[in-house]
Design a protein around this nucleic acid. Structure first.
Length: 816
RNA sequence: GCCGAAGUGGCGGAACUGGUAGACGCGCUGGACUCAAAAUCCAGUGGGGCAUCGCCCCGUGCGGGUUCGAUUCCCGCCUUCGGCACCA
């Protein structure tokens, strides 16, 4: 018999699909009959190297969904592109001593080749690269829209500086004080930078989570944590001597009477003024200087003892006019709230530690509804069952009412108001690197900041000889490019030399796919409104915050601008788990990668496709096992031999109708439900394998020839989304055409209902026997059948049956 | 500390709304084919016991509970992983 040769079969069908343009989907034309359509999207790859197994898993998942949806009658948009700008590609280029464009294009070519070898059903006519001028033209266009809305702005700010990559990083790119990409410790620098005002959308990024159809709970939680919304109040404390008001943010206005001191962050702009002329002036300024050089990692180390200095000034507590000493300490962060806090050591761990260290008073003002608390300890209120004490007219109020009453009281005296604070910071988007999208802004001495006029876009990234990072943008070296004329006054102007964070590029690519050749706009609104929101988005969990938050933000801004008609880009999100090998996350730096190419060479693309999904639940982290893929290869060989053998037999005219046909229908129901409803990909493979095993047991029985043929065709049809090449080939040999376009099989309920079933008989909940009985018997009869079993009689031991539980079609449990 | 997910054979894992625990694959054992090997095919494979070809006991991280019946639900722990964290 002809051997299973994956290479031959895969090459044949890849050529065939290419020739037929099988997966190219045109946009609807006016007057077209409406079609059921769906948008299946996987996160686009960075072309900083070749594809790894994680990509293979990602795109194979999408491919199964896409094939299944097509066969269920949907028109499926499934495009691909490359997130081609950015640090990874540039660093790869530096390492090789080549130009980033050349390295990127070479990697794109290699990835495209790999994708084609995997046989993924992609609409190649929509392929895009974010580093091409016809794409970044529109990234720049969008930037200008944001700028016009005051959602892109420039300011000097303390920023995260990576000394290794020689560029600033967004907050989201700093992990534990280290650069997300290279791991170097991040420094703080004060620089003029471009920001997107994502904080203006904090509430909507939270509230619109309700519009999402199906996102993993963990991702939503991560985003909620990241946005970090807290409700509370802004309360104004006054320094009478200086005639200065200092607002603080607190989530616990009910503890206001317990404030015993007041703390400013070292970076607080009022600190020098407060210290001026006091005996503590030198000490305070010294402390501020010292705090500035401490790294953020040092400052937030919880094991470090609290430090601080007293300023000698006092603020007035607005609720009771008590005078509280003002301290400066780096446990207060300038970036959060107002950079100043009221300290309530009795009810806050950090304030308590500080009070203990500097022997400051501790005053309890909130106690549990029942019971007392020890004086001079810290009690953090956490439930609603607490009440206020020693709080003047508010004493005795339960905590939530106390909060409300105190804030109202403050508001009526213009000393406070309800307030909300966020952990989220604005998105810092400028990068002092070469390989990125140029920011389309000019600086004119006369006119100031001037946006590049739309008709002058794109601002094309200039060629430079020296693109290595040196602390300032390499574009500054392209003097001829930098020097330009101001479109407003015609005078001399200079171009912005920073480039954009690559996350800007990837924040809207899913829209460009809908209209990729458009040269008068990023896309036409009817096209994106037709396809979006993405019905199924698939990608790694590592993008839970960064990319997914940014893309949501972009969509909301575009919605407000009226250029899209939806508020959320991705209705359903699926995050696949990471792949491990030999106990560690697969990564090039650890040297424990399994090369897809090598595996394809040895076992064929389809064994690889099947195995990455068979490994385990797609959303969980999984360990790659070398021996595992051989099992998939063996299964494909088995299916192949079965298919050929069945194909060679003379056509059977009888209708399938036996046990095997029933099994086939059961498998249809299970596979469909697992993929569509449960988004589970490993169990369908197992179900088809089980079916194939059963066919093997029956295949030489001439009585069952019709069933064998039917079951074999069903198995081929069901496994096709996973292994479309062998699926097509066997389908053809079985005498049919175009499985990729064939309808997905339906499970016939007539087959699912059986004439008999195996009744499980339990005594006191323990299985004591099984008996085959006809379907449709009444309860009484089932109980009677159960009692007939000799083993059951033994266990009943003549005792009276007190109760019998009957689960129709399944079991009888006799209780004695 | 707060939030989230998860603990099942030698291994990866299955078991959908509480109803035959261990599907499917790997590995292992035995057999068939073969001069031999590879490939393939068949059988077995949670632990223990009685004994024999059938049955009994134990078994889903630990301790309780609800239930005729719990991997599944509830309470209390332990462990692992992930996110957030001097965020006022």
């Amino acid at each position: 018999m002809e051997r299973y040769e994956p290479k031959t079969i895969e090459a044949k069908w890849q050529r065939e699909w290419e020739r037929e343009q099988a997966f190219v989907v045109p946009n609807p034309e006016p007057g077209d009959a409406p079609r059921e359509h769906t948008y299946v999207l996987e996160m686009l790859p960075y072309p900083s190297g070749e594809l790894h197994m994680g990509h293979v898993l990602n795109y194979t998942l999408g491919d199964v969904v896409a094939h299944l949806r097509r066969r269920r009658g949907f028109t499926v948009l499934r495009p691909i592109g490359y997130d081609a700008f950015g640090l990874p590609a540039e660093n790869a280029a530096i390492k090789e001593g080549a130009h980033p464009r050349d390295v990127t294009n070479r990697n794109i070519a290699a990835i495209r080749e790999q994708m084609k070898r995997m046989g993924w059903s992609i609409d190649w006519s929509r392929e895009l690269s974010t580093a091409e001028p016809d794409y970044y033209h529109w990234t720049q266009w969008l930037f200008l829209k944001f700028f016009a809305e005051n959602l892109a702005y420039r300011k000097e700010a303390p920023v995260n500086w990576c000394p290794n990559d020689q560029t600033v990083l967004a907050n989201e790119q700093v992990i534990d004080g280290h650069c997300e990409r290279c791991g170097a410790e991040v420094e703080v620098r004060n620089l003029e930078q471009w920001f997107f005002r994502i904080t203006a959308y904090a509430d909507r990024l939270l509230d619109d989570m309700e519009l999402l159809e199906s996102w993993p709970e963990r991702v939503l939680t991560m985003q909620r944590n990241w946005i970090g919304r807290s409700e509370g109040a802004e309360v104004v404390f006054r320094i009478e001597e200086l005639d200065v008001d200092i607002p603080v943010f607190t989530t616990r206005p009910d503890t206001l009477f317990g404030a015993t001191f007041f703390v400013l962050a070292p970076e607080h702009p009022l600190v020098p003024r407060l210290a001026e002329g006091t005996p503590h002036e030198r000490e305070v300024l010294e402390y501020v200087r010292h705090a500035a050089v401490r790294s953020s990692a040092q400052r937030v180390d919880p094991d470090e003892e609290k430090t601080g200095v007293c300023t000698g000034r006092f603020v007035t507590n607005p609720v009771n006019d008590h005078r509280l000493p003002v301290w400066v300490s780096d446990y207060v962060l300038m970036e959060y709230g107002t950079g100043a806090i009221m300290a309530v050591p009795a009810h806050d761990e950090r304030d308590y530690a500080f009070a203990k260290r500097f022997e400051l008073p501790i005053k309890t003002v909130v106690v549990p509804a029942e019971g007392e608390i020890e004086p001079d300890t810290v009690f953090v209120p956490h439930s609603e069952n607490e009440k206020l004490v020693d709080s003047a007219q508010f004493s005795g109020l339960p905590s939530p009412e106390g909060k409300k009453a105190i804030v109202e009281w403050l508001e009526s005296r213009a000393k406070g108001r309800p307030a909300v604070s966020y952990r989220l910071r604005d998105w810092l988007l400028s990068r002092q690197r070469y390989w990125g999208c140029p920011i389309p802004i000019l600086y004119c001495d006369g006119c100031g900041l001037v946006p590049v006029p739309e008709e002058d876009l794109p601002v094309v990234l200039p060629e430079v000889d020296e693109y290595l990072p040196k602390g300032r943008s390499p574009l500054a070296a392209a003097e001829d490019w930098v020097k330009t004329t101001c479109p407003k006054c015609g005078g001399e102007a200079r171009r912005e030399t920073d480039t954009m964070d690559t996350f800007v590029d990837s924040s809207w690519y899913y829209l460009r796919y809908c209209d990729p050749q458009n040269d008068h706009a990023p896309f036409d609104r009817p096209m994106v409104d037709y396809w979006l929101p993405v019905n199924q988005y698939i990608g790694g969990i590592e993008h839970a915050i960064l990319h997914l938050l940014y893309a949501r933000f972009f969509t909301k801004v575009m919605y407000d601008l009226g250029i899209v008609g939806f508020r959320e880009p991705f209705a359903r999100l699926f995050n696949q788990g990471m792949l491990y090998y030999r106990g560690a996350k697969m990564s090039k730096s650890k040297g424990n990668v399994v090369s897809p190419d090598e595996m394809i060479e040895r076992y064929g693309a389809e064994a690889v496709r099947l195995y990455v999904l068979f490994l385990g639940p797609a959303e969980q982290d999984k360990e790659w096992q070398d021996a595992g893929i051989e099992g998939m290869f063996r299964f494909l060989g088995r299916l192949w031999r079965l298919g050929l053998e069945v194909a060679e037999r003379v056509d059977v005219s009888e209708e399938p109708g036996g046990e095997l046909a029933r099994k086939a229908h059961q498998t249809i129901a299970k596979v469909t439900d697992d993929i569509e409803r449960r988004f589970q990909f490993n169990t369908p493979i197992a179900a088809v394998m089980e079916l194939v095993n059963e066919i093997y047991g029956a295949k030489d029985d001439p009585e069952q020839a019709a069933d064998v043929r039917f079951a074999t065709e069903t198995a081929v049809s069901l496994i096709h989304p996973y292994v479309p090449h062998i699926g097509e080939e066997l389908w053809q040999r079985l005498g049919h055409e175009h499985l990729s376009a064939a309808p997905w099989p339906e499970a016939d309920p007539a087959f699912l209902d059986r004439e008999t079933f195996v009744l499980v008989v339990q005594v006191n909940g323990r299985v004591r026997g099984r008996v085959e009985v006809p379907a449709g018997l009444g309860e009484e009869e089932l109980i009677a059948r159960a009692k007939e079993l000799p083993r059951v009689a033994d266990h009943l031991d003549g005792k009276e049956v007190r109760k019998a539980i009957v689960v129709p079609g399944r079991l009888v449990n006799l209780v004695v």
